[in-house]
Design a protein around this nucleic acid. Structure first.
Lengths: 197, 197
DNA sequence: TATTATAGTGACCAATCGGTCACTTGTCAA
DNA sequence: TTGACAAGTGACCGATTGGTCACTATAATA
């Protein structure tokens, strides 16, 4: 399996593009970080833009797989406390995993410079999370955990604040644990405000 | 008042930096857009970085003035409907004003490349809006419009979703009116869920 | 063994960038 | 009138960038 260099290039490209932006990333540093010379990159990709597009392809594929997993969503929690720990588990992973952090950075910083990134950002930051939880909330309303109301609106009211706090954690990594506490505090507030009586 | 060229440069720099990023912006285009030669810029600022810093100074000053206006906040609305139209007025302005749109773009896209931008982004996207509305909600609870609960948490639960929709409007300008409708729908949902009985 | 394809190298190229400098122009005060 | 100064110009510079090319090394195949 010696096409692994192609993959290693993409892994490094994510770091480089996320930290410096598309224009700010340069192929010499990227190659050096891989222990390669710059011209070696051109044996695997025909241009900087080709690396960029391959990276976006990979991100789109990853995202499509995640959305596919929405069809078999996380099983409905039996209690509100279980919902909280389920949520916090997902969020903690999303906030700590380096690759996901870099992906969010790239989506944020390049969303106005690239059409594909813009579309991915809209999916990721607005529709994606909301749809997952809308489905979950429907089930939780039917099982009598949550008060009955518009599940899409409820999911949006839930995911948007979490999303804002995750972005804040990305900005100030040294406050990550504090942000996770604020996220849990919000979730508990939210559950309390919308649970069935 | 012939220092106006200095100001014109900053106005154009906001556009240029917001659309292309710090690294992507180049002084030749910026000068050309102003009807100047590139070397003329150096009669007013000593470097690209100096223009950048002057622009951030201006943004910080503007933000400080806006925060200063929190000491004399918008007067407490007498009814919930008045609160909704007050909010929508502020939001509509913030979503439509070109300069504010560009400022948000710049804060978003450069927050990981510049320390001052990072701090401004944290203030603007997290604490800023929340603090304004926390004060307003305290007054509305005391006047019996809203159910009594943690005003800071309530303000966060209110401003974060609005903020997410504003960002979406920035991304997809052609859906601006649709986003404004979604914002109003959310605000009405929010008011209904938290009004005093 | 000879051949061929793949991966990698380093020197080089043209374009672009931020920045400098000698020079011109216009204005206003002495 | 003249001199000083601020504003603006265009040619130029060194550094960096994405990209090319002739070349080497290695390993598998015929």
């Amino acid at each position: 399996m010696e096409n692994s260099t192609r993959e290693r290039i993409l892994d490094e490209a994510l770091i480089h593009f996320a930290e410096n932006g598309y224009k700010g990333a340069n192929l010499r540093d990227l190659a050096a970080r891989l222990g390669l010379s710059k011209s070696a990159l051109y044996k695997h990709y025909e241009s900087k833009e080709a690396i960029w597009n391959a990276l976006l392809d990979k991100m789109e594929a990853y995202y499509a797989r995640r959305v596919g997993s929405v069809d078999n969503p996380p099983q409905t929690p039996a209690t509100l406390e279980e919902f909280i720990s389920l949520s916090m588990g997902m969020i903690r992973f999303s906030v700590c995993d380096p690759q996901i952090i870099l992906t969010r950075k790239l989506l944020l910083t390049e969303q106005f410079h690239d059409e594909r990134v813009r579309r991915l950002a809209s999916k990721h930051f607005l529709e994606g999370m909301t749809n997952i939880f809308a489905g979950l909330f429907v089930a939780m309303m039917e099982s009598g955990l949550l008060r009955k109301e518009d599940p899409t609106m409820l999911a949006f009211a839930y995911t948007a604040p979490v999303s804002v706090l995750i972005h804040h954690s990305d900005r100030e990594a040294e406050h990550r644990e504090e942000m996770l506490n604020r996220i849990e505090a919000f979730i508990r507030y939210f559950v309390l405000a919308h649970k069935a009586d």
